[in-house]
Design a protein around this nucleic acid. Structure first.
Lengths: 343, 343
DNA sequence: TTGAAAGCGCTAACAT
DNA sequence: ATGTTAGCGCTTTCAA
């Protein structure tokens, strides 16, 4: 059986309040009393019931972080940042994964997955503005990620258009003329939208043609999807001199295909990824990538939810985190290992 | 303000019980009454307070999963399996990361990190048997991973010694004589211990010398650690013809160093990893790896905790999950792509 | 079929 | 400095 305050009180021959005082390190308890109660606590193996405390306090000290996938190290790193920042504020993080599936994202946003939470940080993939508009849930919500929403919620992200432009500018600056984009999806408001826009804008600014035939759609955003997209481009008889991928895993999958077909990176085709995951630094050809400040994003997200917890309702705002373009072998070759900055 | 059952009852002009009946889809409620109450619920935007339910029920429906690091995709995949299995049983998973730090692992095992849980699944790195012996916590604990403990807790893992032997046997079968091991640690009971033992046993069984000078210790278990260890081995003037790494990231880190030094994999040095993470399938040289059945491990772990939740106390047992050795280019070269099975 | 009331374990206001 | 008690929001006997 579980031991409660009452049990300890009875055992020590004192009132519940006194035990509570000891448990909570209350000021005014005589050392003698404290020790006597502590003995009972130890003897009975008493542990406070958090659920009861939460009910009493009206809050749980838990915030949820719902991510598309844990397998992508980008999200893992982000999660670590969130967990650490939350811990600094005495908050625990309940991590959830949606698989980037609309169903799951809806459930999470409506609070059906984990309702013991004080706040929610959500990184949506499929959700539309309308899905979020009539959210019946009352815990604060903060959005993460590259989708564009017109909603009264804080949204933490980097400037995806600008970051994509920086990536393409880097490629164009190296003399590349035909830059493929891997990882788009059909549809107006899709995750890659802003990055495709950046790709388009920068090509135009450079006076290069925008060839929509070089935009490869994919089902998912993993290594295999990047490989499949690259294969499709090559099989279509196209031979771009550069590839900009939606994220690092896809870029790495694409490089695998290039390698298997005897195409050299970057000599024949330069490759740029997005997210700067550790993996990209240890391939046979290290990967140039847009590196968002994950630590900042995680920290800002937590602070944003917590700010709304006290009942305060600051106006919803869009927060831009920093990013850099990290240049490596996949664009510079074996010689260059500079780590240029931007953003 | 938050709306409670009482508010709804007042608004609908009925008793709390009736509202509760409607909320919980209780049998005996007249359709008229149900609709009337439902209207009030919708109008007021009532949402049940889970914390109160939990207090009442004496359980939360949450189990915690504490992992060393989320960044390693192996753990991410494991987590996904745990989350899915838990969901099937109407349980939510609170994911925690310990960073493989003893302090954090202790806190978790003692229940100081997340005390709202019904059960705990822990994958320890640093914890010793004694650390766990006098655990004052009363929620069921299930252990994961390659460490060896003599404790009254269920422990789910693959047979690490046998798996390591299979990996080394594969290398020896290909004619390799000098197999280095990357990722050991000093100390009797350390994570890599069983794998080192398997390495030792298989070499001995094959009549090969066991050269402890080919065992490279590391601080952590990431790409960079593998790269550093490989560098150290080569800089010491050693030139093994095979490397068996504690896990895939380390193996990949080692391959990067080999590549940078102009050594060919597998011609000059064959490489085997452990965990079979996705990344290993998309490098310039795909990675041969021991592939534990992550799905089974996750499922067994959840079922194991849940079995102890009802107050039942089955005898603690060691559960072995399956594994396979997946053979790829890092040992077979570009020609062979078989996926041999084992275990 | 619906209502009244007790109690889950805790904290805090109030009383002693 | 310590004790009494109400109440957080819910479920669940028991009664009507």
């Amino acid at each position: 059986m579980r031991v409660s305050l009452k049990d300890v009180a009875a055992h020590a021959g004192v009132s519940i309040k006194t035990v509570s005082n000891v448990v909570n390190n209350f000021q005014h308890v005589t050392p003698a009393m404290r020790e006597r109660v502590q003995r009972s606590i130890d003897e009975l193996g008493y542990r406070p019931n958090l659920t009861a405390r939460h009910l009493r306090a009206g809050r749980t000290g838990i915030i949820a972080l719902a991510l598309p996938e844990l397998g992508n190290p980008y999200f893992a790193e982000l999660a670590a940042a969130v967990i650490d920042t939350a811990a600094e504020h005495d908050y625990t993080v309940l991590l959830d994964h949606t698989g980037g599936r609309r169903e799951q994202e809806l459930l999470v946003s409506q609070g059906f997955r984990a309702r013991v939470i004080d706040g929610l940080i959500l990184s949506p993939i499929e959700l539309e503005t309308e899905d979020l508009r009539d959210r019946a849930e009352n815990v604060p919500l903060v959005l993460l990620g590259e989708r564009d929403y017109d909603l009264p919620y804080d949204h933490i992200a980097i400037d995806n258009v600008a970051a994509a432009r920086a990536a393409v500018a880097h490629l164009v600056g190296l003399g590349r003329r035909e830059v493929a984009f891997i990882g788009a999806r059909r549809g107006r408001n899709e995750p890659a939208q802003l990055r495709v826009r950046g790709w388009r804008e920068e090509l135009t600014a450079a006076g290069l043609p925008v060839d929509e035939g070089l935009v490869a759609a994919t089902d998912g955003w993993g290594h295999a999807d990047g490989a499949a997209a690259m294969t499709r481009i090559l099989d279509a008889g196209r031979r771009p001199d550069a590839v900009f991928a939606y994220n690092d895993p896809m870029a790495i999958g694409a490089m695998r295909v290039l390698h298997a077909r005897g195409l050299r990176v970057p000599e024949d085709i330069a490759v740029v990824g997005f997210d700067d995951v550790v993996e990209g630094r240890f391939g046979a050809v290290t990967l140039t990538s847009v590196s968002p400040d994950k630590g900042a994003i995680g920290r800002l997200a937590v602070e944003s939810v917590l700010a709304r917890l006290g009942g305060a309702a600051p106006e919803a705002r869009r927060v831009w985190a920093e990013y850099r373009l990290v240049e490596r072998e996949s664009t510079l070759g074996r010689s260059g290992a500079s780590e240029g900055t931007n953003g």
